[in-house]
């Protein structure tokens, strides 16, 4: 058996170990590789940065625990930016498991920027039904959310005073891992002409580039890398920036293994992948 054949029959658990080491070591011994801010993230940052103090930003945080690794640091960074600029924040989620993530994220951001619930921000909680909620909010936010997440009527919340529908919202920020972004673009941007910034998972990010070009989106933050760029722009050192060393090393490992596997495949003279080793007896 040649070296190439042996390589092609490599136990994949060795690759898992390599990736595990590539993830853990940079977290234990960070080298803080430089991060450059992409034009898409810079555009998102600038869109928020130029809003006058006292403007209201609506956050739709449509994600659940499976994707919090990418979007939770993004939520905290963008929200802290809004709080630093003295913008009013109204947050909601269209996912049933969202409140458990969104509520602590808002609390962390507000605590770090010394902001107070109901005075500087409101969390409306979860509401079922994507499109109906989005369209309904165009008529009346109170009709969709009569009370906030904590059961307080919206009329009793100072930050909600004078906020009736999208007309009083300066910017929509949607952080999502799903088609919620498409619906927000269709209804809030298309029908109600609201400016929008999108934070998406890395898998989705490329799908939304055309909306940047057409100015349906004013900024796009993609995945943990986008969150790290935003943190850098904010001069923060959050979970996303901490994870970027590991991200880079694992990418190097993956690229190296792809090249090695391809060379081994050509060297072995096979026209397809090697037959799998026998499954170990349970």
């Amino acid at each position: 058996m040649t070296w190439a054949d042996r390589l092609l029959r490599l136990d994949r658990r060795i690759i898992f170990l390599l990736v595990a080491a590539g993830t853990a070591l940079p977290l234990l011994m960070p080298v803080n590789l430089p991060i450059s801010v992409s034009p898409r993230v810079e555009a998102a940052y600038q869109t928020i940065d130029v809003l006058p103090a006292g403007s209201t930003v609506l956050f739709s945080l449509d994600y659940e625990p499976d994707i919090s690794a990418e979007l939770q640091p993004m939520t905290i960074a963008i929200m802290r930016h809004c709080f630093r600029k003295n913008l009013h924040v109204i947050a909601l989620t269209l996912y049933p498991a969202g409140p458990g993530l969104v509520e602590p994220a808002i609390r962390v951001a507000a605590t770090k920027e010394h902001k107070v619930r109901n005075k500087d921000y409101a969390f409306l909680g979860y509401k079922s039904g994507f499109q109906t909620v989005m369209i309904g909010m165009g008529e009346s936010i109170r009709q969709q959310f009569p009370v906030d997440f904590y059961g307080t009527p919206l009329d009793s919340i100072p930050v909600m005073r004078g906020i009736r529908n999208y007309g009083e919202i300066a910017l929509l920020v949607n952080l999502t891992a799903s088609s919620a972004a498409d619906y927000w673009i269709q209804f809030a941007v298309g029908r109600y002409r609201k400016p929008m910034v999108l934070g998406a998972t890395a898998v989705m990010a490329t799908d939304y580039y055309p909306y940047l070009s057409s100015r349906q989106l004013l900024g796009l933050i993609g995945g943990m890398k986008g969150a790290a760029e935003y943190e850098k722009r904010m001069d923060l050192f959050g979970d996303a920036r901490r994870g970027m060393d590991a991200q880079s090393l694992v990418h190097v490992i993956v690229a190296f293994l792809v090249i090695l596997g391809t060379v081994a495949l050509f060297a072995s003279g096979q026209r397809g992948p090697a037959p799998r080793a026998e499954k170990p007896q349970e």
Partner: peptide, 10 residues
């Protein structure tokens, strides 16, 4: 790849 690695990192 970046998305999946992000989940592992978390």
């Amino acid at each position: 790849v970046m998305a999946r690695v992000s989940l592992l990192i978390s």
